[in-house]
Design a protein around this nucleic acid. Structure first.
Lengths: 195, 195
DNA sequence: ATCGTTTATTGAACTAGTTTAAGGGTTTTG
DNA sequence: CAAAACCCTTAAACTAGTTCAATAAACGAT
């Protein structure tokens, strides 16, 4: 059952009683999304916070020259939202698209506020989750400054082996901030060595 | 008075009663730091969370080849800590050094936990702060992927005009993830145009 | 003031990664 | 199943940013 995934995710971050867990879960609703379907587009206001239970999403920006840059992938057990747009209910700078048939548990902005009031412990839960997210983003920035494209490519394959196999090289390139052609070169160069 | 800066910072993120503010402030202690002094070194455990009231700090990593990479600067009104090391009390990957004679309000890990218990609203406060931090780190990553070094340089000058004037070009270069020499070239190229 | 150290600038040679273009392969869709 | 659309690879030409080295300028400690 999908809610169990969500519960397990919550318990990774803080301890919660069964009552608290049930109250929290109560606010989430499952939603199915087709492959290729956008659940948010640049310019829209993000009215949900989602937890992926199946499939995979791609979170990206498109710059002025029309280049798509993938910020991250969200597969099972990941959170997906435009955090800035969701918290301040302003226009989104990101697109969110399902890249596989997917399912998510969603909560609306108003329900999220109700949830914080009904279950104060949820503040702690999301505080801890957000702090861990800060760590992850900082680490990624450091990697971009200290590692070469080739190192970052193999780091990605090693860190996300399952996701790597479900996406195209073009998507990996976009995530790493390099071109598809350069990923091809890296792969060719390392063909012999079983990297 | 320094605590007023801290209070004002808290109130930017959520509403708090005077009682709550006073309880929170009570846990913070002011500390003075000399120019050049490290308040944290790679490998140490970060036992404090600091709020800068005067001066400026540099938060950096040193990679295997001995290159220092500056992750961010923290001047007045910024938070300074090794967030990963502080929350999980593990060995720090970052150095934190005062680059001017500075002052900060610090809270220890144990006092921070006490604070969360005494003032439950603090969970909300730091939840909101952390979420905003996530937004900022995401945006910076996107800028690194979509803007050239030159664009990032001028974006930095424009976004942090006061800090820009207090640090060296070498430090800006390190923050931007480029070389000092390339910053020189960018500056030379743009000398005429009053950029 | 002065010595030593760190920083800024410049230029030449270099390289990691891009661009453009073309051909072949694989999905997706009707 | 065919057409369209997208993806992957390759190669040649290019460019943004680096490296190295040398000199001048600014800063900090005594």
């Amino acid at each position: 059952m999908s809610f169990n995934l969500l519960k397990a995710n919550f318990l990774k971050h803080t301890s919660l009683t069964d009552d608290e867990l049930n109250s929290i879960n109560h606010y989430y609703e499952e939603r199915q999304v087709d492959k290729g379907e956008y659940i948010l587009r640049q310019g829209d206001i993000c009215r949900f916070e989602g937890f992926v239970t199946k499939g995979c999403f791609e979170i990206s920006t498109t710059d002025s020259q029309g280049n798509e840059r993938i910020l991250y992938f969200a597969a099972q057990d990941w959170w997906v939202m435009e955090i800035d747009s969701f918290i301040s209910q302003t226009s989104s700078e990101l697109d969110i698209k399902a890249i596989e048939p997917s399912r998510l548990l969603v909560i609306t902005k108003t329900d999220k506020e109700k949830l914080y009031q009904e279950v104060p412990k949820a503040e702690r839960l999301f505080r801890v989750m957000s702090q861990r997210a800060v760590v992850a983003w900082q680490r990624r920035l450091i990697r971009n400054h200290t590692m070469t494209a080739e190192e970052r490519y193999f780091h990605f394959l090693k860190t996300y082996p399952e996701i790597s196999q479900r996406i195209t090289n073009k998507q990996i390139a976009s995530y790493l901030g390099i071109t598809q052609e350069f990923v091809s070169k890296i792969r060719k160069k390392n063909l012999s060595r079983g990297k």
